[in-house]
Design a protein around this nucleic acid. Structure first.
Lengths: 225, 225
DNA sequence: TTTATTTTGTGAGATATGTCACATCTTTCT
DNA sequence: AGAAAGATGTGACATATCTCACAAAATAAA
């Protein structure tokens, strides 16, 4: 019988050598579930008993702020979801929602912790992941708060193009009001700014299909706008 | 000869049992340095070779943003400084500056990593610390960006009073323009808002000496303002 | 002590963005 | 298919905050 975890991105991604018994442990304590666009993968405020790995798809991480829902970041597979919740707090401190069809692997937290304790390379890897995302969070926040609308919107478009879809042409997986919740702006302002970008020949849009036609300018705006 | 690390807060704080040999390893690879108010403890962009622990005092963590220096948070001893840099990146991704006289312990990164590998409880503790601060970063950012000036300023005052100094009376360790860099506001706006708080009988001030006289109202403003 | 430098206090005007209002257009559900 | 819900476009106006400008205090340096 073949061990499913053997070739799984969750495991491969860490570049860590796993013993057979460790792989078996994983294999015996995980479940894979499919989510549709808009489905909640992790719900803020709910007790968490699993480590969660996004195997396929894209998801938004969002948190309930004092006035409205705040999108913290968008992530794409393969990646862990809710890693900090696993160690920092039993209760989920944020929500994760699928923005495309996604495959998600739920790993029992006990098995995961056992693995961490046994395999030092693996725990070093997790340590590094956590560290990186904390540093990223600091940087992201500083950027968001210091730039104004056009700059932030440019960042979002570049994020889609360079990291998430790795293409100059893509379909926006978020509504304009979601983008607003991401960059701290009203839905109307996003709409107007997008219209400006189109007017200025920086992007083309039909529906949610976006094509970046002047990336240089977009990067300029990201820096100075 | 007494082992200095034996009673050190760095070690005690983790509530983790250390073996004698581990304590000796630590003892042989650390240096304690005093910093004065305003001194740079960690400088962004510089190569990092130490894990750093704040033993006494208070420090601000700040990062160079696109337009200006952004204060991420204030921390007080005992706490680690630059933990995410240690694992996530060799280059410091942010600066840390003492805001009061501080004692800082520099631990060799190699020794620290060895300790992590040997002592699972310790590495679990560090994992938890990292997780907590990431979650905190998300929350902080959502709060900052969604509240307006008065709400954010109220938060800052409450942070001083409830977490940093644990008293309703304290001396501001930051200038008004620093506070501005913390909550994303201009120095003048901070000044005006403080004047309002005084006018409204919420706080009293003489120089940088602050006394909170109406904490209830301050919390109200923090929530709704 | 005297001289710089940094902080604080305050006014007036400019502006980016929020808010409300309403008309499409799309997608989803029954 | 038809109805209901949600997403987008666009105008007019309000407003919180920034920016510039300049003076007084306080702190640090010489």
């Amino acid at each position: 019988m073949k061990n499913e975890c053997n070739d799984c991105v969750c495991v491969l991604r860490s570049f860590v050598q796993m013993k057979d018994c460790q792989l078996e442990l994983l294999d015996g304590s995980h479940t894979v579930v499919q989510f549709k666009r808009g489905d909640t993968i992790i719900r803020q405020g709910v007790f968490s008993t699993n480590v969660i790995f996004l195997r396929k798809g894209m998801a938004k991480i969002h948190i309930t702020g004092p006035a409205r829902e705040q999108i913290v970041k968008l992530v794409k597979a393969p990646t862990y979801l809710g890693l900090p919740t696993t160690f920092g707090d039993k209760i989920n401190q944020y929500s994760v929602t699928a923005v495309t069809e996604s495959d998600v692997c739920f790993v029992d937290i006990g098995a995961f912790k056992k693995l961490l304790a046994e395999n030092n390379d693996f725990s070093a890897y997790i340590l590094m992941e956590l560290s990186k995302s904390e540093l990223e969070a600091y940087r992201r926040c500083a950027n968001r708060t210091q730039k104004q609308l056009r700059g932030n919107l440019a960042d979002v478009l570049l994020e889609f193009s360079e990291h998430l879809f790795e293409s100059d042409q893509f379909t926006l997986p978020l509504s304009q009001s979601d983008i607003g919740n991401w960059v701290d702006a009203g839905r109307e302002s996003i709409n107007r700014a997008l219209a400006e970008f189109i007017q200025d020949g920086i992007i083309q849009m039909q529906g949610r299909e976006v094509k970046i036609t002047d990336k240089k300018m977009l990067k300029m705006i990201s820096q100075n706008g």
